[in-house]
Computed example of a mutant assay.
Amino acid sequence: MKKTYTIRKGAVMALVATSMMFSPVLTGSAFAHGAAPSAPVQSAAGIVIPQGAQGQEVADLQKKLKDHGYNLKVDGIYGPITQEKVIAFQYAQGWNADGIVDKPTLNALNRTNAKSSDVVQTSKPVQTSAAKTTNTAAASDNTNDTVAIAKSLVGTPYVFGGTTPAGFDSSGFINYVFSQQGISLERTHAGMWENNGVHVSKPSVGDVVFFENTYKSGVSHSGIYIGNNQMIHAGTEDTGVEVTTPEQWKYYWSKHYIGAKRF
């Protein structure tokens, strides 16, 4: 499942001179662990509710997250799902999200006027047939969850055929991110492109972008779009799950792009 891409020297010489944006090897799938997208930042306020905690304090936290429009079960356990919602909320505030519940995070959650309107509205629902009408609030919540989960997995190693946080291939990565939101997808890129979700004319944050004729002919790769011609995908055995750059999109991915879907 390891993918090898050959890029013409003349097209990328200037790019390579500034940074090695393109790896000669692009793996078809990879998945990532549940770590935060950056090293936890210990604020002066310190940790108020540690990850793994249980009890009423955690239940109150979960209720506040629900008040802000995040869909999760109030069970009093600070597990991976609660951490993902905390990360999504922190990203919505424009912070360097780390999943740490400190005083600034609690203060933001305690704002009575912040409810679900604080959740960043990054995409609009697709207007399709009546049978496929999209609820705006639900679509926005899913968008935030998709990006937050994907970002939390950046750096996870590539494992051939992997479908768990111990290691993933590229289609396994997409499958896992959406399974955390209760969405079941086809196992392969081609299957997802053919059978899941709805096509959109232009990708919005949280949509899945698809590519063809990369390491093999036909639909062969996909990633989660995060805006600015960037995506999170299972990159190489060297990089694991990574965030691509606009330059990579311009010089490589745009040449293989076939469209986007919303799940």
Rank of each mutant, 00 (worst) to 15 (best):
A36T: 10
A36D: 03
L65N: 09
G197R: 00
S222Y: 05
W95G: 07
V41W: 00
E57V: 01
N110Q: 09
H233K: 02
A234C: 02
I183A: 00
V198P: 02
H199I: 11
V41F: 01
A150K: 03
S129D: 13
F173L: 09
D102N: 15
F210G: 07
A190I: 01
V16I: 11
Y158G: 06
T164G: 03
F22H: 13
K261V: 07
D118L: 12
A32C: 03
Y215R: 08
T4M: 09
P37W: 04
E242W: 09
S217Q: 14
D75F: 00
Y70W: 05
M231G: 08
A131R: 01
I149Q: 00
A53N: 04
E212R: 14
D141S: 13
F89M: 07
A260F: 08
V200F: 08
G79N: 13
D102R: 09
I87Q: 10
Y251I: 12
V205P: 08
S123N: 10
K3V: 14
G206L: 06
K66A: 12
G235L: 01
N228S: 14
S204W: 05
V200Y: 04
D102L: 00
T146W: 06
G223A: 03
Q248G: 15
P40Y: 04
I232H: 06
N110Y: 09
G162P: 11
T236H: 05
T146Y: 11
N113L: 10
H256G: 09
V12Q: 11
N196F: 01
A166W: 01
E194V: 06
E194H: 04
F89L: 06
N113T: 12
T146I: 13
Q121H: 07
E84W: 02
W253D: 08
P40C: 02
F178D: 02
G218F: 07
R8A: 15
T239D: 08
I7N: 11
V12A: 12
K73N: 13
V198G: 03
A150N: 05
T146A: 15
F160D: 12
E57S: 05
A260E: 03
I49L: 13
G227L: 06
L65H: 03
K9S: 12
Y5S: 04
K202T: 15
G227W: 09
F31D: 14
W253H: 05
K9M: 05
K63C: 01
V25L: 08
P24N: 00
N142C: 11
S19C: 10
L185V: 07
A17D: 14
F263K: 06
K64M: 12
T122E: 13
V200H: 06
R111Y: 06
I100N: 06
D238E: 14
S217T: 15
A108G: 10
V205H: 08
A130L: 13
A88E: 03
S29V: 09
F160P: 10
N113F: 10
H221T: 06
A36L: 10
R187K: 14
Y158D: 02
N96K: 14
A39I: 00
I87R: 11
A190F: 08
F89A: 02
N229I: 04
K151A: 10
G155Q: 04
